[in-house]
Structures are given as C-alpha cells and as structure tokens.
C-alpha cells in the first residue's frame, strides 16, 4: 500500500503525518527540532513509520514544509507552510475559509477557497511580539509553563493591558506589574490580549471570511484562543488532532496529489 508523508520542520518542533492512499491519517509524530533539522526530520519520519508498522518502501512521496524544508535531507519536494496550512485546514474542516496559524517563529493569516487553495496570506513582521515565541519568553520570566498560563488567563476576571508591542519591553512591563503586586492572572490575560491584537491586525487586512480555524502551537492555548475570539468572533479548532499537525497534514496531501499527477501524466508506466 502506498503511503504519503508530510514533514513540517518548524522552529520549535518537527512534525510528521502519514497518509494512506485514501487520504486517511494513519500516524502522526512530533519531536523537538533542536539544532539539527536534518536529524529531527529523519527521527520523526522513522518514528511515525515504526509506530504504524510501515515499511520505508511503501512511502510513495514525501513533502517537507516549515523553515527547515530545504535541509530535511529527505528525498522530498518542499512546499511553503502557507500552502500546506491551507490544504491541511480544508482537509480537517471543509467550511474553513480563513486559517490563523500561530507558530513559534511567525504567525499567519491565510485566506483559502473552497478547495483549500490559498487566495491571500499575511504574516507578522520581523518583530517576535506576534508569535508564539512572545509567550514562551514571558513564560520563562513568570516561571510558569504555557498550559498553566492558559488556565490562569481563562479564569481571570481582570485584563491588565500590556501596552508594549516589543517582546523585550513587554517582559519589562510584566516584571514591573508583578513588582507592583498586580494579579498575575490579569497580567497573563493582558499578554494574551496583546498577542491576539497583533493577530487580529494580520487577519483584518485580508478581509477574512468564516469559518476561521486556529492552528499551530498557539491553538493549544485556551487563553489566547479566547482573546482571539473576542476580536474575530467564533473560531474552530482542529478536532481530534494536535493543532500543530495542520501544515504536515497539508504536506502529506500534496505529496499524495503529486504522486497521482505523476501517474496520470505517465499512464503507460503505471500499468
């Protein structure tokens, strides 16, 4: 049975998704990217094959995506995360017309059509304040993990504004608020609100349509998702799968398409 893999070499983690010919997800795996993208891509693919008891020979095509897509060392085709994200989101929820992907390195708003094809997209500028890195950095300062931060944010009745749009200055502002004895829950809610407002700017520039799917590591943060919903209205989250796998699902689907196209363009050889 032919299998298709999508490997997403992201700045924080490397993800792999394995699809069968029918487009059914048969396995997923995630490892930290570390400082060796080639190695993490090999490990994640090897592990997902092992987990699903698949043979490497069955792997008909691989598509890589993410910042490490060109150095993954796999015999693969590289596609941008934006295209893969659109395709993956459509696969999971066909009514989606806008994807908000909040990754470690960047945040994206992607407008797609009814087939999952990207119509327009917008990314954060060079500043880290619009990305997952923003929260990771603050989490270290607060000595909290991201999950705990999300929980505190959702519970908070108070939102303390974080005015700075720079991650370093925001950190200073957070420390200053803590030293003034202000409630940590309110500070975190303010941080989530600041990040959501950056994402909102990306989205409104595209004149987005519903349904909106939020994915990437940011989608795992209930506090952030709640703040995004306050600005953009109701959003959907990937159902039954970790939201970080959306681009790798898209990559695997594109791998399947490219293999089909090859077969169709060479009918004699497919006999």
């Amino acid at each position: 049975m032919a299998l298709f893999a999508g490997v997403d070499s992201g700045s924080t983690s490397t993800k792999a998704v394995l699809l069968d010919e029918g487009g059914i997800i048969i396995g997923t795996h995630l490892v930290p990217s570390g400082n060796n993208f080639r190695k993490s891509a090999e490990v994640v693919l090897h592990t997902v094959m092992d987990k699903t008891h698949s043979k490497r020979d069955d792997l008909a095509a691989i598509v890589t995506t993410g910042y490490g897509r060109f150095i993954s060392g796999l015999n693969s085709k590289a596609m941008s995360e934006i295209t893969c994200c659109g395709r993956g989101a459509h696969y999971l929820h066909s009514a989606v017309r806008t994807v908000i992907d909040i990754g470690g390195q960047d945040s994206k708003a992607i407008k797609i059509d009814g087939t999952g094809k990207v119509v327009q997209f917008s990314l954060n500028d060079k500043c880290a304040a619009g990305t997952g890195r923003f929260l990771e950095r603050i989490a270290v300062s607060l000595e909290l993990d991201l999950e705990r931060m999300a929980g505190l944010s959702v519970q908070s009745q108070q939102k303390l504004p974080i005015s700075s749009t720079c991650v370093v200055f925001a950190e200073t502002e957070v420390i200053s608020r803590i030293s003034n004895g202000e409630a940590i829950e309110g500070i975190i809610k303010g941080l989530h609100s600041a990040l959501a407002s950056r994402i909102h700017i990306l989205a409104v520039g595209l004149n987005i349509e519903k349904d909106i799917l939020v994915c990437g590591g940011g989608a795992k943060n209930a506090g952030l998702v709640k703040e995004i919903e306050e600005l953009l209205g109701e959003v959907v989250l990937p159902s039954g799968i970790d939201p970080r796998f959306v681009p790798s699902i898209g990559a695997a689907l594109i791998a399947r398409d490219s293999q089909r196209e090859q077969v169709e363009s060479k009918p004699g050889e497919s006999q």
Binding site: Y67, M79, E81, I82, T83, V118, F121, K126
Partner: peptide, 17 residues
C-alpha cells in the same frame, strides 16, 4: 535587517498561490 529565510518563505508561498 534582511532575513533570507523569512523572505524566501513569503516568496515561495506567493509563487505557490
């Protein structure tokens, strides 16, 4: 101020579009 990886990602996505 130029980040090749960032710009390349945008170029590639545009070409794919």
């Amino acid at each position: 101020t130029y980040s090749d990886a960032e710009i390349k990602q945008r170029y590639d996505a545009f070409f794919e579009t």
